[in-house]
Design a binder for these strands. Sequence first.
DNA 1: CTCATCGT
DNA 2: CAAACCCT
DNA 3: AGGGTTTGTAACGATGAG
Length: 580
Amino acid sequence: MPGLDQRAIAAALRRLAQILEIRGENPFKVRAHENAADALESGEFDAIEEARSGTLGKRKGFGEALVAKVAALAQTGELDELRELEAEVPAGLFEMLRIPGFGPKKVQAVWKKLGVTTVDELERACKDGRVEKLAGFGEKSAAKIREGIAFLRTSAGQYLRGAALAAAEELREALAKSRAVKRVEIAGSLRRGREVVKDIDIVASSRSPDKVMDLFRTLPQVAEVTGSGETKTSVRLQSGIACDLRVVRDEQFPFALMHFTGSKDHNVAMRARAQRLFNIRISEYGLFDETHGDALIPCEDEAAIHRRLGLSPIEPELREDRGEIEAAEHGELPALVTREDVRGTLHMHTHSSDGKAGVLEMAQAGAQMGFEWIGIADHSVSAFYAGGMKPDEVHRQFDEIEALNAKGSPCRILKGIECDILPAGELDYDESIWKRTDFIVGSVHSSFTMTEREMTARVTRALENPYLSILGHPTGRLLLRRDPFAIDLEAVIDAAAKHGRIIEINGDPNRLDLDWRWVKRARDAGVMLSLGPDAHRPEDLKHTWLALTVARKGWLEAKHVLNTRTAPEALKRLRKMRGA
DNA sequence: CTCATCGT
DNA sequence: CAAACCCT
DNA sequence: AGGGTTTGTAACGATGAG
């Protein structure tokens, strides 16, 4: 077997860590493997080269054993230890680890004591009462596991927008390079900006579809071709995501793009309306005028289709059949906020808490991406698991930021903190720290299991604090992993509106929280929103764009978004909340 | 109540 | 498992 | 210096079993 690349080595070490964990080995040993995998994944150094030259062992976290493992994986792609242990641990156990509340110890228990090795078996064991009889488990445990399995099932086969989009853009670019391809676009729910997707749809136009299909089938990302004809090819990528490519003649491209972008409900509504008002039939191949012998009405792009149907152009993000067609009819669509409108971005971490870079590096990355200003917001002291800052650390960081701003930072840096909203609705620290900040992002990071009433009271109380500028990731959801905590968002939005507070659209690909459906309600209630990358390393600043998509999906215009302001304007808006 | 486990 | 610590 | 041994995440809340 050939040697593995750095990412694959990291994945192998992570797998090993999981096996060790299920086997109940020393937690520090498990952690050591995870840390090593993290380090390799960060890509900050060439581990393969360092393993070869013998310098890897000088690195913190890499001792004799891990250096040997990395070297073996780099050279042969195999590791005896991993192969042997994998043979011992049934593959289904890893899937069980994904059940919320079901960790390595419980996996071990049901495996060893009940011989359960798959999620399906576990479900049966819950139903027939074997689980609740197990020492350490009871009726409630069994019920909770069944809930967890149900959640797992609903998220099965779905992928985060962030990951799917990256894969789709690679494919699109590969296809666009071909001379046989005239036009090519990502379609489907990905184009509509949905937060999770079940597959990737790509639409292309070409005079020689077979050539395009050939190219597509042989792309390096493709693991398996599941179907292929002259208009459609379906594949599964290495990452497991299914991907469909449709190829049409160039005249048909706008119609196909619109059809495959959906949503289904949007298409149905569009078609019914076209039929009713214009006697026009819409299909993926064109607009057909039924009063004139079903003649094709040519359109060069989607905007032309919209215009022909008496509508202003409807951006893909809005095509959810939530009033966009009526708005387009009356010329009342929002002028959606664009990348060009965005001048700054705030909510990012540095090595003062759990970030991987310093303030200056983040500022440089921000400037490079064209931001005029950034806002740092490291974790507060209660977020111990994330290395939250003690008061003196806050002052030290703020001194550094002030010095940088004074001597000419790559871009203007705003001083902020991501302050924990404690269970009673208090913010971490006190006024002596708060007053030194330009802004505070207040976030819930603990006690998620409060009742809706309690949680709502907690957050609305925090919103009354004049120093809380922005409510961070308001529902705490983790896409495909954890539901939002119970909270009355209506009441939260009202409280934010009342006190002039801003609500964050967190752009972490795992969160995308506030959800777009609520973004629109916040907007309608007069609340300003802020795009937050929640970056932990310079390259994460691009999460701003994921948040931007959510904003667009929530019908936001530039005026609704803090990030479109110049630094002085943003500061003015933030200060206003404090009554200054 | 204590202990184990999980999650952040 | 790695790193710090303690011992001769 | 080289070895064997001990210590170390980062700290706490929620939940459930017994």
